[in-house]
Design a binder for these strands. Structure first.
Length: 549
RNA sequence: UGCCCUAUGGUGUAAUGGCAACACAUCUGCUUUUGGUGCAGACGUUUCAGGUUCGAGUCCUGGUGGGGCAACCA
């Protein structure tokens, strides 16, 4: 945190709270994911905000799984969320909780509202209730059961809990105001009957609380001072406050910020789940997914994601962030920390005619020019190398820095070589380029005086490792796949979002590469070993390329 | 024809009634054994109409645009 950095509206609000002596100077936040899907980059924003703010003010953050809907929630998601959170670099230092831990407390709180005449059991169908709710422009109508006595309501509610009634046959509703402009205050549902097995409480319960009657109360029970969430919950805040006031419990306070949107992707768990279920991607952690696990498998670093979120800012207006900013944050981090290695993705043979046959010499190469402490490694060099097919052109103009008839290039960390001739196959495709090298042009001790404009990466052929490399592009071809009224986002899936290269050649040091390290393949981009298949590398991103050939 | 939120370069985000700025993107140039990095520079901004004020991006009124709200989802 730099001192002169401007403060966003939530920081200003907390500053004011603290100045007013609110909550005894404590800042206690929470991150409340529903375990019904994997975390994505939008959650990373929520995480960085809630955990970041607590840390900034010397407070703590709770992780709370918001598991009030047994038909959508699974243990698999709980585990994945824990892993993603830890990987991102955050720890639930306020503790880990489940809303389901509070089912008894919530039941008791509901009873209190019933006894106070502020909640009632409604026997109507969901259709009838929906019908009576009115519309945003018309007030709703009272339920015929609205004026049941507290005693009758208590009896009915306890029997709901005891399993005496069918699923969906009765609900508990708060008695507020059927004519309120805010639809959420028109006698909202508190509990519904569901005979479903819960991932934690099993079959203990057949009534489950709704979000609005669980979330705020859980915040309150945990002593959360600042409950931060996204804009769509703004209209829920009056209800959040109503429950707290009428239950007379700890006054947690909700503040909303704009969620993160990224272009060229979708960001709802439901849509991401559809991509997974329909097989458009290889699971939640497909490297093209905007999920945390997808970004991890893609080769993103936690630091780059945190930096990205920091750059994006916190405000209340809708936004669509350019995915280029995410890529920039990755490159910015990786440029400083990624080990440089040589790899050829689309190899053709380079034969150095005047280099002794069978000779191999070891040449040192920098591990990272941005990091003086990173040292060097030894690269085998010999008469036959692989170079990138696109680094040779039969006809080239003055702006072409790479190899071509009449040109001299530097082989990175090795020698300068001069074109002699080349060999084509029957189809006219170049398969081999022949050159001569300048013995006195060795990297670091070049006395040749010969100029070379370009530098090529290479891999010595007899030592090369074979690998598969997967290149990724944006999953959707449209910047806003979700933004078309007439068309489904599915119609914008980019058919070229993955390209599999099977004939790649890597330098021998990559034999020990493990997932978790992202490398820079010199001149090509950033790559990381895949977590699922050995011998496969995923491209995290390209390098910036300002060459306009 | 309701209510709530919102409106600043292409994209984001600052300004706290007093000279509109920063990042990303784009474009130039320099450096470079990665056409990477780095460095220097350029381009470009307050939704509209009124009002308050010596002074308005900021406050007020109205309009317009965008988002949200009528799940036994969260």
């Amino acid at each position: 945190m730099s001192e002169n950095k401007s403060r966003h509206f939530i920081q200003q609000m907390i500053d004011a709270d603290l100045a007013a002596g609110k909550n005894g100077g404590v800042v206690h936040t929470r991150f409340p994911p529903e375990p019904n899907g994997y975390l994505h980059i939008g959650h990373a924003k929520a995480i960085c905000i809630s955990f970041g703010l607590a840390k900034e003010y010397g407070g703590v953050t709770n992780l709370r799984f918001d598991d009030t809907n047994p038909i959508k929630e699974e243990v698999e998601y709980v585990d994945a969320i824990r892993e993603d959170l830890k990987w991102l670099g955050f720890e639930a230092n306020g503790g880990e909780y489940f809303t389901s831990d509070y089912f008894n407390d919530l039941f008791t709180l509901a009873l209190k509202l019933i006894d106070d005449g502020k909640a009632y059991v409604d026997d109507q169908t969901s259709e009838q209730i929906a019908e009576q709710k009115g519309t945003p422009t018309e007030p709703g109508k009272h339920s015929p059961h609205r004026d049941r006595s507290p005693a009758e309501n208590r009896d009915l509610f306890e029997r709901m809990k005891a399993g005496e009634f069918d699923a969906g046959s009765r609900v508990l509703r708060a008695k507020i105001d059927m004519a309120n402009d805010n639809m959420h205050l028109r006698d909202p549902l508190m509990y519904r009957i569901m005979f479903e097995t819960h991932h934690r409480t099993g079959d203990d319960w057949c009534i489950y609380p709704m979000y609005d009657f669980a979330h705020g109360q859980s915040d309150s029970l945990e002593g959360i001072t600042h409950s931060l969430c996204t804009l769509e919950f703004e209209v829920h805040r009056p209800l959040y406050d109503w429950y707290i006031k009428n239950l007379d419990i700890f006054p947690s306070c909700q503040t909303e910020f704009a969620r993160l949107n990224l272009n060229y992707t979708v960001m709802s768990k439901r849509k991401l789940l559809t991509l997974v279920e329909e097989g458009h991607v290889d699971g939640w952690d497909d490297p093209r997914m905007p999920t945390i696990s997808g970004l991890r498998r893609r080769g993103y670093t936690p630091a780059s994601i945190r930096e990205f979120i920091d750059r994006v800012g916190v405000a209340k207006r809708e936004n669509i962030i350019d995915v280029g900013l995410l890529e920039w944050a990755l490159r910015d981090d990786l440029n400083r920390v990624a080990p440089r290695v040589m790899a050829v993705l689309d190899p053709i043979k380079l034969v150095i005619l005047n280099y002794p046959e069978g000779q191999i010499e070891m040449l040192p190469s920098e591990n990272n020019p941005e990091d003086p402490d990173s040292g060097t490694r030894e690269l085998p060099f010999g008469r036959e190398l692989f170079i990138e097919a696109e680094d040779f052109k039969i006809e080239a103009n003055r702006k072409w820095f790479r190899l071509a008839p009449g040109k001299v290039v530097r082989l990175k960390s090795a020698y300068k070589v001069e074109y002699v001739d080349h060999v084509c196959d029957d189809s006219g495709k170049v398969t081999e380029v022949h050159v001569n090298y300048f013995e006195n042009s060795k990297s670091g001790s070049d006395t040749s005086g010969i100029k070379a404009k370009g530098t090529l990466h290479w891999v010595e052929s007899s030592h090369a490792i074979d690998a598969e490399v997967r290149l990724y592009d944006r999953l959707f071809a449209d910047p806003n796949p979700d933004g078309h009224k007439e068309k489904s986002y599915m119609e914008f899936l980019n058919p070229e979002s993955i390209q599999v290269l099977t004939n790649c050649k890597l330098e021998p040091s990559l034999k020990n590469a493990k997932p978790g390290t992202t490398y820079q393949f010199t001149r090509l981009g950033y790559f990381t070993p895949d977590t699922k298949v050995d011998g496969v590398f995923n491209r995290a991103s390209t390098l910036r390329d300002s060459w306009k050939g």
